[in-house]
C-alpha cells in the first residue's frame, strides 16, 4: 500500500494529473517564458525548487499554523524562496533574469504552489510533500519544455540559441524556408498548449471532459 502510494506521487503529476494540462494550475506565469527553450527550463527549474521547498516547510509547520491566517503564512514562505531564486539569478545569470523579467516574481502567485500546499502539504508528512512538490514542478516543466521546443524551433529556427535549421535553407540565402513569425507571438503559446491537451486526451480517454 505504502509503496503504491509512493509510486503514484512520482508518476501522476507527470502525466495523469499534470498540473497544466489536467489540473489547470499555474498557467499564468508559464506561457510568456516559452519563446525560448532556455528561459522555459530556467523557469521550470525555479518553480520546481520553490514548490518542493515551500511544500516541505509548510508541511513541517502544518500543525502550528492557525487555519484563518494560513494563506498569508503560505505566501510569506513562498515569497521568501522566490526572492532567494531571484537574487541568485540576478547575481549569476543576469541575462536570463532580464529575459524572464516579472515572471520570476510571479512564481509567488503561481497556482501550482498554492494548490499543492493546500491540497497536499497541509495534510501530509514532510518527505512525501517534498516529493509531491518536486514532481508537480517537473510535470509543469515538461509541458513548458514541449511548448518552448516547438516555438523556438519553428519561430526562430534555433534550440537553446543554436541554429538548427541550416542557414542555406533560408530565403535570404537563396533557399525556400523562412521562420514562422506567428510562433513568437504570445497567442501561439496558447494554441500550442491546446494542441498538447488534445494529444494527451486522445491518448488517455479517462481524462476527457
Amino acid at each position: 500500500m505504502q509503496k503504491k502510494m509512493n509510486k503514484d506521487i512520482y508518476t501522476k503529476p507527470l502525466f495523469k494529473n499534470n498540473p497544466i494540462t489536467v489540473l489547470v494550475l499555474g498557467i499564468c506565469s508559464s506561457l510568456a517564458v516559452t519563446v525560448q527553450l532556455k528561459g522555459a527550463l530556467v523557469m521550470a527549474l525555479s518553480v520546481t525548487l520553490v514548490t518542493a521547498f515551500s511544500s516541505l516547510i509548510i508541511s513541517l509547520m502544518r500543525n502550528s499554523i492557525p487555519n484563518r491566517v494560513r494563506i498569508i503564512v503560505q505566501l510569506v514562505v513562498v515569497a521568501m524562496f522566490v526572492i532567494l531564486i531571484d537574487q541568485v539569478l540576478k547575481a549569476f545569470s543576469y541575462d536570463t533574469s532580464k529575459m524572464l523579467s516579472v515572471y520570476i516574481g510571479l512564481i509567488i502567485t503561481n497556482c501550482i504552489i498554492m494548490g499543492r500546499i493546500e491540497a497536499f502539504a497541509l495534510g501530509n508528512r514532510p518527505w512525501p510533500s517534498f516529493v509531491d512538490g518536486a514532481f508537480n514542478g517537473l510535470g509543469y516543466g515538461l509541458v513548458l519544455a514541449i511548448v518552448a521546443f516547438f516555438r523556438e524551433l519553428l519561430g526562430s529556427g534555433t534550440l537553446f540559441g543554436f541554429q538548427i535549421i541550416p542557414q542555406t535553407w533560408y530565403i535570404e540565402n537563396g533557399g525556400w524556408y523562412s521562420n514562422n513569425g506567428l510562433m513568437i507571438l504570445p497567442p501561439m503559446a496558447l494554441i500550442l498548449l491546446g494542441c498538447v491537451v488534445w494529444v494527451q486526451r486522445s491518448i488517455d480517454k479517462e481524462i476527457e471532459e
Binding site: A189, L190, G194, R201
Partner: peptide
C-alpha cells in the same frame, strides 16, 4: 478530446 480545456486554450489564443 478537445472539449473543455483544450478548446478554451485555443479560443483564448485566437482572441489574443
Amino acid at each position: 478530446p478537445l472539449k473543455g480545456l483544450g478548446i478554451s486554450y485555443i479560443i483564448t489564443g485566437l482572441m489574443g
